[in-house]
Nucleic acid binder design. Sequence first.
RNA 1: GCUCCCGUAGCUCAGUGGAUUAGAGUGUCUGGCUUCGAACCAGAAGGUCGUAGGUUCAAAUCCUGCCGGGAGUACCA
Length: 558
Amino acid sequence: MKTELEQAITASVKELFGLDVSVELTRPEEQFGDYATNVALQLSKQAGKNPREVAEGLAVRIRDSLAEKVASVSVAGPGFLNLTLTESALLAAAKADLPKPLTGQKWVLEYSDPNPFKPLHAGHLYTTLVGDTISRLVERAGAETIRINYGGDVGLHVGRSMWGIVNNLGGELPEKLANIPEAERPSWMGARYVEGTTADEDGRTTHDEVIAMNKRVYQVHADNDHESPFAQIYWTCRQWSYDYFPELYKQLKVKQFDRYIPESEITPPGIQAVTEQLAKGVYEESDGAVVFKGEPYGLHTRVFINGHGLPTYEAKEVGLILTKWRDYQFDRSIIITANEIEQYMAVVYKSIEQFEPELVNRSAHLVHGLVKLQGGIKMSSRKGNIITALDILQAARDAGAETGTNPSEETILAAVKYAFAKNRIGGDIAYDPKESVALEGNSGPYLQYAHARARSILAKAGEQAGAELTGLEPDERSLLRKVTEYTEVVERATNELMPHHICTYLYELAQKFNQFYEHNRVIGSGEREAPRLTLVRHYADTLRNGLELLGIAAPERM
RNA sequence: GCUCCCGUAGCUCAGUGGAUUAGAGUGUCUGGCUUCGAACCAGAAGGUCGUAGGUUCAAAUCCUGCCGGGAGUACCA
């Protein structure tokens, strides 16, 4: 509806003034109408008339040409045009399906990215939920989505974990791993990582041992060693992690990943590409390392291959990006990570731009902030005092239990997902266990409850379907107007890859309904009952659709 | 030092060129359940939109300086 009106008004401007502008409609306060545009203010200079004059001229034109859709047009303030839709146009907008502008496109989305051998901390939970929601958005818009999960199965943290594991087993004794119950594997490995890290940071002797472990892990990969006791431990524990991740995602009710790419897999192509481009002058040698000089582009210089000939994160990232490009030839590639990586990712992309510019054109790096505790303490898995993803869920359960409402697991997930999703992506989010899971106010549970209330009305009324919604009363129209905004909100959230717009909207929608519901009966309202049931159904369907886009369940009752 | 991000009500955040009164939630105070689910609704109080300039018919929103917070700043990721 919005787009149609915009095009029609753009055409009117062209006819009346001979000027090319792209008219954009906004949603004004309800008292002013359903749509508004400030195009007259923009045009007044070019048209050589005062803005109100321009607006009046356009108003006449719109009344004439859009009479079926627009019930009234008024000029307000300095020259705003306010449009009010006809009842039939409003109803048509409420019934309209969401458009699928990304149909035919292939999007590769990388997010979550937990490391094997390490526990998932609160930040992983955040990045996982953000990525899941964004991937749902683009999938809903018609794109083919490929969800990629990248993780470090080699590197210092693995050296530390292996030290902790070997130490705990009392030697390189892979057979003893069988003693660890399956259910305890993730927490057992998490504990070994903490031991390795703590020991590493405490003593020089241990540090040398950890470094040696790290090198042996690389050697396991180089030799494709699956036989030695050390290698058996490594592969077994790595697999434990890869078994655990899908289980966790299932528990979180997020979409499963299409592919896990371990660091070890993309390291060789990364080294190869950097070496090739070194010969072509994209990268250069400096102090024995291979670097990309970022300064000409306003960036930093970063090391891609270090003085020992080992690839750094940057070279690996080159390998990862090229692998995705080679395997998928995507239309868009999105990487979602915490913002501490932002600046060196810019260097990585700038370097790739020198030899694969089209790939870079199609790529974007989305960053979010950190999950912080009260008091601004950064969460880290490097120290012992980690807050894991599961701790967050447990905190939500505990807080939920305190409310005395016995929230279901579905509602706990809704609370956590919504608390993370409602903020604009980019800044840090503060995590207060009590507040973030509060089952009232602008929260996931509020929306679930609002939905369940509406469904309960429909259930009580039985399945009397589809009465026409005509003769709208003011409160009814107000609610229906809000429902029609949904399409535009989803469109905006998708264009900007900003799911929080949907949260803001759904909360406003639910409030609108609760207000309606407070003042108007549905069942037993005589001749309004049938049309009001249709209105409630529109509302409930919209709310459910929005919640599901956010990965939040919309139960019929709770 | 340099680069990037951020600074809106006590707290957590929307709003990022347009509408007399800058919006929510939470917290504080007040009112509303014999009536379709009160996890709700209605109302009050609470803001120099960090700060000083600039651009514009119009700035919380764009530009510049400054102040404050965070991140990065070559062989960790």
